[in-house]
């Protein structure tokens, strides 16, 4: 009885979750309108390392495994032109329950996932940022993508 009740609640929560709504929103093709790399020094100094516009494209589709559709995962393909040569890379992403982070999965490797904080979430515009700390130099690197739906 107790488990049936919990099952019902879980079903209700999952079926209308922010996670699913956000995954649906992400499906499709996006331009990387802006790609910014920043050094944030903890004393307050900000150093912009690079600021690229039209830095490539993201294409996101629902993941599959053989005949199975994995509704909670998306295959993200990044494509761009680097040094005159076309370049592409693929990664599987998921979204947390509250749709606050996009997580690029690192496969079987533990502690290899990369989380992007969703800084802006609109149907046609997304801003994602990820951070990495350099404690020895008391600074944090920030990589920020501004995406615009094609």
């Amino acid at each position: 009885m107790k488990y049936g009740f919990l099952l019902l609640v879980t079903f209700l929560v999952v079926s209308c979750s922010k996670e699913n709504q956000y995954l649906n929103r992400l499906e499709g093709d996006w331009n990387i309108e802006n790609l910014v790399r920043t050094e944030i020094h903890w004393d307050g100094t900000i150093n912009v390392l690079s600021d690229e516009t039209d830095a490539g494209e993201f294409s996101m589709v629902v993941s599959t495994l053989g005949d199975l559709t994995l509704d909670n995962l998306l295959d993200l393909t990044f494509s761009s032109v680097e040094h005159g040569q076309p370049f592409s890379a693929a990664v599987v992403i998921k979204v947390d329950e509250q749709a606050k982070r996009v997580i690029a999965l690192g496969g079987d490797c533990i502690q290899c996932d990369l989380a992007y904080t969703i800084e802006e979430n609109k149907p046609n515009r997304q801003v994602w940022s990820t951070f990495s700390a350099d404690e020895a130099n008391q600074l944090t690197y920030k990589l920020s993508f501004t995406l615009k739906r094609k």
């Binding site: 944030i40 020094h41 900000i46 606050k100 982070r101 989380a115 951070f131 920030k142």
Partner: peptide
């Protein structure tokens, strides 16, 4: 419980640079 690191430029991170960051439910 949302735990975020706040940076001097106003950035708010839920990413994995610190393990305590996260969205706990």
């Amino acid at each position: 419980m949302e735990v975020a690191t706040l940076y001097p430029d106003g950035s708010r991170s839920l990413s994995y640079e610190y393990d305590i960051n996260g969205v706990y439910t």
